[in-house]
Amino acid sequence: MGYYIQVERGVKLYVEDVGAGMPVLLVHGWPINHKMYEYQVNQLPKHGFRCIGVDLRGFGKSDRPWTGYSYNRMADDIRVVIDTLGLEKVRLVGFSMGGAIAIRYMSRHHCHRVIQLTLLSAAAPAFTQRSGYPYGMKKEEVDSLIVQNDTDRPLMLENFGKLFFASQVSPPFRSWFHSLGLEAASHAIAATAVSLRDEDLRPDLGRIHVPTFIFHGLLDKICPFSLALLMNKGIANSILLRFEKSGHGIFYDQLDLFNPSLLKVLRS
Rank of each mutant, 00 (worst) to 15 (best):
M1Y: 11
M1Q: 11
G2I: 02
G2M: 04
G2S: 13
Y3M: 14
Y4N: 10
Y4G: 00
I5G: 03
Q6N: 12
E8M: 14
G10R: 12
K12I: 05
Y14A: 08
V15H: 01
P23H: 05
V24Y: 07
V24F: 09
L26Q: 04
L26I: 06
V27D: 03
G29A: 12
P31Q: 07
P31K: 05
Y39W: 10
Q40A: 14
Q40V: 15
Q43C: 04
Q43I: 15
L44A: 13
L44Q: 11
C51D: 01
L56D: 04
R57S: 09
F59Y: 15
G60I: 02
K61V: 01
D63K: 09
P65T: 08
W66H: 12
W66G: 14
T67N: 13
T67K: 13
Y69Q: 10
S70L: 12
S70D: 13
S70E: 11
Y71S: 11
N72S: 14
R73H: 11
I78K: 00
L85R: 04
L85P: 00
V93Q: 01
S96P: 10
M97Y: 11
G98L: 09
G99D: 03
A100P: 01
I101C: 07
A102V: 05
Y105K: 12
Y105F: 14
Y105C: 10
M106H: 03
M106T: 10
C111V: 09
R113G: 03
V114T: 10
Q116T: 02
A122Y: 02
A122G: 03
A123E: 06
A124Y: 09
A124G: 07
P125D: 07
Q129R: 15
R130F: 15
S131P: 00
Y133I: 09
P134T: 05
P134M: 03
Y135T: 09
G136M: 12
G136F: 14
S144A: 15
L145Q: 07
I146F: 02
N149K: 04
T151A: 02
D152G: 04
D152Q: 08
P154W: 02
M156F: 13
G161R: 02
G161I: 03
V169L: 12
S170K: 05
S170L: 07
S170M: 05
P171A: 08
P172I: 07
P172K: 01
F173K: 00
S175Q: 13
F177E: 06
S179C: 02
L180N: 01
L180Y: 03
G181C: 05
G181H: 02
L182D: 03
E183T: 08
A188E: 03
I189M: 14
T192C: 11
V194F: 11
D198M: 11
D198S: 13
E199N: 12
R202H: 10
P203N: 09
I208S: 12
H209D: 15
P211D: 10
P211H: 09
T212F: 04
H216R: 08
L218V: 15
L219F: 02
D220V: 05
P224F: 09
P224E: 09
P224D: 14
P224K: 08
L230I: 13
A236D: 14
I239F: 05
L240T: 10
L240R: 03
R242P: 08
R242F: 04
G247P: 04
G247D: 02
G247E: 01
H248E: 11
F251Y: 14
Y252P: 00
Y252Q: 12
Y252V: 14
Q254F: 02
Q254W: 00
L255Q: 14
L257I: 09
F258M: 10
L262Q: 07
K264F: 15
K264I: 01
V265W: 02
